[in-house]
């Protein structure tokens, strides 16, 4: 195969991206290679069923259950499988814990790797050139753009997802949440707090 084809086949498709995807879908459907109902099912899955509420449930449970937390940090896959949070782009999860000493943050500088079964499809900013380029070199400036300022003495550890390992940040439990149950705690856990570009909400602000 030619390694760099100066005349890429994709250029044969219409220039407008919405028409381009329509053209590909039409060709593939006519040849029996794509079932349009399967496309609808995939979209429904990621639009309505698989998203950051999955991750938030896991985080909240780790906050209230010390044994669950220990297993989540040391060997998460059996746990996540049992919860039904296994699947495409989440086959090899590692959960990294924020502490007063270390703040974790996740990026994929080479593409857009992201833990789909726990967080769904990544937001636009996660896939942007600016985030991919800057998160590794100046994470503190990036955090400031998300409104996050870390205490002096907290080191930043940025995880660049260069393999099929997917990372989830376990944020610190906010103060003033002692009486809350798992569901109420999960409501405080934002998507961004599990990527490491945000912090969980405080109970009064939730």
């Amino acid at each position: 195969m030619p390694h760099d084809d100066p005349d890429h086949p994709h250029a044969l498709l219409p220039p407008d991206p919405a028409l381009r995807v329509k053209a590909l879908e039409t060709i593939l459907t006519r040849k029996g290679l794509v079932d349009p109902a399967a496309l609808d099912a995939i979209i429904d899955m990621y639009q309505s069923r698989i998203g950051p509420r999955n991750g938030a449930q896991v985080v909240a449970r780790a906050w209230v259950d010390a044994d669950f937390r220990a297993r989540l940090l040391s060997n998460p896959m059996p746990l996540l499988r049992d919860l039904g949070f296994y699947g495409r782009q989440g086959e090899h999860m590692v959960v990294v814990e924020n502490t007063p000493q270390t703040h974790n943050m996740v990026v994929c500088t080479l593409c857009s790797c992201y833990p789909w079964p726990l967080l769904g499809i990544p937001p636009g900013w996660y896939k942007s050139d600016a985030y991919r380029a800057r998160a590794v070199r100046e994470p503190r400036k990036v955090l400031a753009e998300f409104g996050v300022e870390l205490p002096a003495g907290t080191a930043v550890r940025v995880w660049d997802s260069t393999a099929e390992i997917r990372y989830l940040v376990l944020p610190m439990r906010p103060e003033g949440t002692d009486g809350l149950g798992v569901d109420a705690l999960a409501d405080l856990v934002s998507r961004d707090s599990m990527i490491g570009t945000g912090l969980p909400a405080r109970p009064e602000a939730a």
Binding site: P17, A18, A38, I42, Y46, G124, A130, F146, R191, D192
Partner: peptide, 27 residues
């Protein structure tokens, strides 16, 4: 600068984004 999005922004900003993801997975 990075432009953060609200947590409740649509998963797919355009309908064709969703189709593009789905046809890629189906392919």
């Amino acid at each position: 600068a990075i432009r953060p999005e609200p947590e409740d922004a649509p998963v797919f900003a355009e309908d064709w984004h969703a189709r593009a993801l789905a046809v890629t997975l189906a392919g």
